[in-house]
Write a protein that binds this DNA or RNA. Structure first.
Lengths: 345, 345
DNA sequence: GATCCGTGTGGGAACGATGTCACAGCCCTT
DNA sequence: AAGGGCTGTGACATCGTTCCCACACGGATC
């Protein structure tokens, strides 16, 4: 059974439908869109003709005329990271529900790729953009072109642009406080950056928890890791092999946690007997490994869905004041945390 | 520092650039696209004017005129599954490299959502579509509208539509043969469907490996699971608790493998001492759990990238015969497989 | 019977970019 | 000096849709 390909005939246009139904283009448009008058028998006839020709209105032409499309642009850093994949899935679901199509680009954590993608979205006249920004430039650029923007996960333009983020500071504080409470005094922090709001807030949360526990911050225990598993693993190996090893590690995201976890196992250390581990961002593997990993869970899917709702509202009211929505996170206590070695409770 | 939003002024058009540069619209078009004559001093002037106004050509208008867009549609079943996320990432990267933007929809394994998304893509006049099909209808529908299609991961319209798949049969046979070779005689298969090419081929590979080892197929050991972790886990619990338990399980994809893995651990069975496990499709967790999971690894990223290349070629030569590209897979031997209990080698 | 209204329809001008076509210069050849 | 071949530019129709406007028809009101 061969699938028929339309090679010769061009796509049917509204004009073809009009001729088939014996009416004018205007009438077809009114009948199909439901805007304006159309006698019910005529409407019937038009609908039948359209179905018969399997007519699909041309979004390009419609958008050109109406000057506003029903597409949202989505810029995420890395689809291979389950956090962003989940986020994109949430955007997709909510966008579909609201009749938007989704134009997605993976910006690979590069500011250049991000700018290029933003240009493409402006050219496409998208109704709005949801972005996990890699630089402050992207929101500025889009706003300058009159495109509504929602920054998600992290913010560069808080105050002038809508944002949807999670309670990073509280989450990080809770996680670190959990370790403090268990009796740990040497708690390492693995973090990839502290310039963006995510990193900064998580770092602050860590500091707050230490301060609340009357602990000094040891700069040697705060590791600025690269953004990938390999680098995190390397740095964790260095730290855990060194003298005066920490009794607990807080990894500020799922990628860093994976690196630390791999290093711990390569060194044959036992969790939590030798070292406790807490992560931020619940990845699937964390509930499958032995021991399971205690972590701050954030609902990435909901983050994406919420961003779409915010964007939709913004499109409806372009001049309202900007809003930052903070979603709550919670600590999932699993088996990777216990008191430090030799500690009695 | 407030980000400036363009509220009043409309976007600059080619006409604005023309006036600023003191030439006609045609000349601006020629200067910017590089098609047709434009004196170098004029070109300079136009480029400067365009940059000054931060002019971005309207893709809608261009596409309308040229009747062909530079967007590809991508329909995937489930972005939350790392396999599809990785695939989408591969598509994204290769699409960007070739100057395509990507319109993505998550079809949630539903044929309805898939059809709806396909209609939207036709309306958008995408240059082509890459789809992990949920039904035979989608490729037929798109082809009938003259849209080039590449089916990826599984095929419904082999012979009339391009496809990019992996060596499912060989991969499954290799995996099952590995178990046979270790001495297993009761090898269970967990599979979600056998109607699609993926499921069918993997099933056939399993049968071939058993036949090659002179083993009878026990229908009771072939489990048609639902498509999610919860269902797979439930069925695995049933089977592993029952009498005459298999000594090895082959799970035909990463989701089913997760369910089986969870069931095994809940029951306190040891891997591989009590039961061996082989999976198809290497998910991140498989190399992190203890013991690590032997699996047939497929390169989903490359699958996506290859599909884009195929689609690009197809767009260039719409009437060439269709091609199915098969990417090879390989068995990654890890620690979840050994001989059956009581077996001596 | 003239006017007015509501209902329904069609004509035609946009939207922004492209590309064909005509034509204006200019230099070179015969 | 006339013609031919370049180079370079602008006018204008076009893509498919929407929507404003004009208008036609019938019935109701004065």
């Amino acid at each position: 059974m061969a699938v028929e390909r339309r090679t010769t005939a061009r796509r049917p246009t509204i004009k073809d439908v009009a001729e088939a139904a014996g009416v004018s283009r205007s009438t077809v448009s009114r009948a199909l869109t439901g805007r304006g008058y159309a006698a019910s028998d005529v409407r019937e006839r038009v609908l039948r003709a359209a179905a018969e020709l399997s007519y699909v209105p041309d979004v390009m032409a419609r958008t050109l005329k109406q000057q506003v499309s029903r597409s949202v642009g989505v810029l995420v850093s890395d689809l291979r990271n389950p956090f962003y994949a989940e986020l994109a899935a949430g955007v997709s679901r909510e966008a579909r529900e609201r009749g938007y199509t989704m134009v997605l680009a993976d910006t690979s954590l590069s500011a250049d790729a991000e700018h290029e993608a933003a240009e493409a979205l402006v050219a496409l006249r998208v109704a709005g953009v949801i972005v996990t920004p890699n630089s402050p430039a992207v929101s500025t650029y889009l706003a300058a072109h009159g495109v509504p923007v929602v920054e998600v996960d992290r913010q560069f333009a808080a105050g002038s642009t809508d944002g949807v983020v999670v309670g990073n500071r509280v989450g990080a504080r809770t996680a670190a406080a959990h370790l403090v409470e268990l009796g740990h005094r040497r708690i390492a922090l693995f973090i990839d950056e502290t310039d963006w709001t995510t990193g900064y807030e998580r770092y602050q949360g860590y500091l707050e928890a230490l301060a609340a526990g009357d602990l000094q911050v040891d700069p040697g225990l705060v590791v600025s890791s690269g953004w990938d598993v390999a680098d995190s693993r390397r740095r964790a190996l260095d730290m855990l092999r060194g003298p005066d090893r920490p009794t607990a590690v807080f990894a500020a995201n799922n990628v860093l946690a994976e690196g630390v976890w791999r290093a711990i196992h390569e060194l044959g250390l036992r969790v939590p007997a030798d070292v406790s581990l807490v992560a931020f961002d619940d990845a699937p593997w964390m509930s499958m490994v032995a021991p399971t990993v205690t972590t701050v869970s954030q609902d990435a899917f909901n983050l994406g869905a919420t961003a779409v709702r915010r964007l939709d509202e913004r499109i409806g009211m372009p001049d309202a004041d900007s809003v930052t929505t903070v979603l709550n996170v919670h600590l999932v206590r699993r088996d990777s945390t216990a008191g430090p070695p030799g500690h009695r409770r």
